[in-house]
Write a protein that binds this DNA or RNA. Structure first.
Lengths: 144, 144
DNA sequence: TATAAATAGGATAAAATTATCCGAAATAAA
DNA sequence: TTTATTTCGGATAATTTTATCCTATTTATA
C-alpha cells in the first residue's frame, strides 16, 4: 500500500507529535528506536517531512524535530503520504495506465473508484493529533 | 497499490479471457503487445499464474495460454493478486507492524479497516468475465 | 569565541523489484 | 521421426527502493 519510507514517515510524525505535546524535541535516534526503523534512513525521510513543512527541525545544540503544538491537529495523514509517496495511491490508475479516466477507463477503474475515494477521504480527514492521542493513551502502538 | 508484476498479471489474464471466449490461445508476445508490457517479464508472470491455476498453458506447437471458457466467470481478481503479490494488501498492517490486530493495533488500524475490507470485497467479488466483457465491448481499455 | 551537539546532504552500498536472454523440454504436425 | 513452435526455468542485468556512512553546516551554551 505505502512504501516503507512512507510507513516510517507516518510513524515518525506520530511520535514527534506525542513528544511535542510535552514540549520535547526528538532526534532521529530516539525516533528510530521508538518506531523500530533504520536510523539513517529515517533521518532522510525526516528531511522530506521538513521540506514539505509537516514537521519542523531545529538545528544545532538542543535542537531536534518538533511540530508546533497548536498545529498538530491541522496536520493530516494525506500531507505525510503526499510528501513521501506522492498522490498516485489515490489519484493514479490501479493498473498503471498513463491515461485512465471516465472517458478511457482501465478495466478496474469503476471497481476501484469507491476504494480510492474512501482511502483519500480517510487520509484527508485523519489528523495527527487523533493518532498521537491514541498512542499516548496506549490505545494503539508504533511497533512490534 | 499493486506491484508492476501484478498490474501486468491482471491485464494479461483479462486479455487471455477475451481470446479464450473465441477459442484462441495466445502467446506472451501477443499478450505483451496487447497490454503494453515487457514480453519476457510478462512470460514470467504468466508462469506464476499457471502455477496458481489461474490460467492454463499448453506447451509446444500450437500451444499458448488460455482459460477454460466456463471457468472465466469463476476466476476472481483476488486470485490473481494473491498469486503475484500475496494477500498483504488487505491482510497486512498498513504501517508494516508484524503484529497488528484488535488487541494490538497500529495507529491507523481502525481507520484502515473499512478501506481494506472494501478492497478485499471488491477483489473477491470481481470476476474475470465481467472485466473481459467490458474490454470486448470497448467500455474499458488495457493500455495507453 | 570555542566547543559540543544537532540536522543537512552527498556518496555509496545492499536488497528488492523489474526486465532480458538463452538453452531445455514439450508437443503438434509434416 | 524430424522439424518447427511454444512454454519452462535458470542466469544475469538494470533499475528502484531501502539503508548506511561520513563530512559540512548550524546553533546554543560555557
Amino acid at each position: 500500500m505505502f512504501s516503507k519510507a512512507c510507513e516510517y514517515g507516518i510513524k515518525a510524525a506520530i511520535f514527534i507529535a506525542t513528544q511535542s505535546y510535552e514540549g520535547k524535541r526528538v532526534s532521529p535516534k530516539e525516533i528510530a528506536k521508538e518506531i523500530d526503523s533504520p536510523q539513517a534512513f529515517t533521518a532522510k525521510i525526516l528531511q522530506a517531512l521538513v521540506k514539505h513543512q509537516v514537521v519542523n527541525s531545529i538545528k544545532g545544540a538542543y535542537g531536534g524535530f518538533e511540530i508546533e503544538r497548536n498545529q498538530i491537529k491541522n496536520v493530516k495523514l494525506s500531507q505525510i503520504v503526499n510528501a513521501i509517496d506522492g498522490d498516485s495511491i489515490y489519484n493514479g490508475c490501479g493498473l498503471g495506465l498513463k491515461k485512465c479516466d471516465e472517458d478511457h477507463p482501465c478495466p478496474v477503474h469503476d471497481k476501484f473508484k469507491s476504494v480510492r475515494e474512501e482511502l483519500k477521504d480517510m487520509l484527508e480527514n485523519t489528523s495527527l493529533d487523533e493518532l498521537a492521542r491514541n498512542i499516548k493513551s496506549g490505545t494503539s502502538f508504533l511497533k512490534i
